[in-house]
Amino acid sequence: MTGHHRNGELQARVNALLALAEERGIVDREEIDRRIETLDRSVSPVNGARMVVRAWNDDGYRERLLGDAGAAAAELGVAGGGYSSEIRLHAVANTPELHNVVVCTLCSCYPLAWLGPPPAWYKSEAYRSRVVRDPRGVLAEFGTTLPDDVEVRVWDASAEARYLVVPMAPDGVDALPDDEQLAVVTRDCLIGVAVPQV
């Protein structure tokens, strides 16, 4: 994920490797298609939004989410996609005193199995290199200006954990019906570059 892909060349290489792996019985093309379909059908940032909204409305769920996010996801039927049993989800909560934001500086690790594929900017060298160095500056560019006394916690997912930000419930959100509460928890809120707006 470093630099600019020459997509044609990359695709040709992927195809050659795939053909070889298939020929040798290492992968099964139908299984790959099945997994892509599962990803398209069942995995999106709405999963994360459901977890957050439930946590806003249910203190017990919030506690379980912050203790074991993978289990809390499963509780809502968000299975995690089954890509690798090694990957563990961890939820980090914003408070009036601290704000969390997620990055993968080495590549593009992202809670894909729970939230779907990451946005293109998440994989860019600009975001990956700058958010650890100047998180407040980067957040301000996303329109999220934090007071100076708020602590910023950046989570660099470089090993087996994936991070999900649990934003604070905005004022007035409890007056909204569930589907409208879900809509305020955007993908960018779950990454931590935005905060929910009512």
Binding site: V132, R133, D134, P135, R136, D148, D149, V150, E151, V152, R153, V154, W155, D156, A157, S158, A159, E160, A161
Partner: peptide, 18 residues
């Protein structure tokens, strides 16, 4: 610690390390 005096005084960077 990471960036010297230009680093944020109230910034923490968490990294998962073997």
């Amino acid at each position: 610690e990471l960036w010297g005096p230009d680093g944020g005084a109230r910034d923490l960077v968490h990294v998962d390390l073997f």
